[in-house]
Computed example of a mutant assay.
Amino acid sequence: MQHETRARDTKGDIHRAALDLFSTRGYEKTSLREIAEQVGITKASLYYHYSSKQDLLQAIIGTFFDDMRAVFDQVDDQPWSPERERELLGAYLDVVINHRSTGPTILRDIAAVLAAFGDQLDDLIEQSRRFQVWLAGPDPKPSDRILAAAAVEVVGAVFSAGLDQSEVPDEEFRTILLDAATAVLARRQHHR
């Protein structure tokens, strides 16, 4: 029997198992015991890492929120330019792609997410709106704001459509979405 040399990433294993079960069965219908069984640890071991199911949900989705905030915070420090716009849209896409397994959990159990995050979610929504205002460009008209919101929604629509994203390599997937979002934003010139 070969000896495994890498240390086990128990928290990562717990996150993956929880996301899988939350996405397929729902947050409310998934127990900590089921998560522990899927990981191959005892429920006591799971409690060592997370004191409750809500604590686990906060840890999983909290990393998505933190990464998204880091992108949104950049708009406060950066003047708008076409190059910077594409760069920040790319950073936004990187977060969404890296956390794509979190999406079904958020969409399926929005009530659990709202209960777990409340004010943090409101803050993230406000930061997302600031991001959209920044994407609208300097001195935006109402039509520019609509196009900026539509560009961000292009990304969300693809993830919520239930498409099998594994059929396209991540880098190609990113390029397709980035091109689609920037194509929407390019319509601003037609409205000026």
Rank of each mutant, 00 (worst) to 15 (best):
R8V: 09
I14V: 11
H15F: 10
H15I: 02
R16I: 02
A18Q: 06
D20W: 08
F22N: 01
S23P: 00
K29Y: 02
L32Q: 14
S45W: 02
Y47S: 11
Y47C: 13
Y48Q: 05
S52I: 05
S52D: 10
D55Y: 06
Q58P: 01
I61P: 09
F65R: 01
F65E: 12
F72R: 08
V75K: 01
D77F: 00
Q78H: 05
W80R: 09
S81H: 09
R84K: 11
E85L: 10
A91V: 09
A91I: 00
Y92H: 01
D94F: 12
S101L: 01
I106V: 10
R108V: 01
R108W: 02
A111V: 10
A111D: 13
D122F: 15
D122V: 11
Q127T: 01
R129I: 09
R129W: 05
R130Y: 04
W134T: 04
L135E: 02
K141S: 07
S143Y: 07
S143I: 15
I146Y: 04
I146L: 11
I146G: 11
F159Y: 14
S160L: 07
G162P: 08
L163H: 10
D164W: 02
V168G: 11
V168P: 03
P169A: 15
R174D: 05
T175F: 06
D179C: 04
A180Y: 06
V184E: 08
L185V: 11
L185H: 09
R187E: 02
R187D: 00
R188Q: 04
Q189K: 13
Q189S: 14
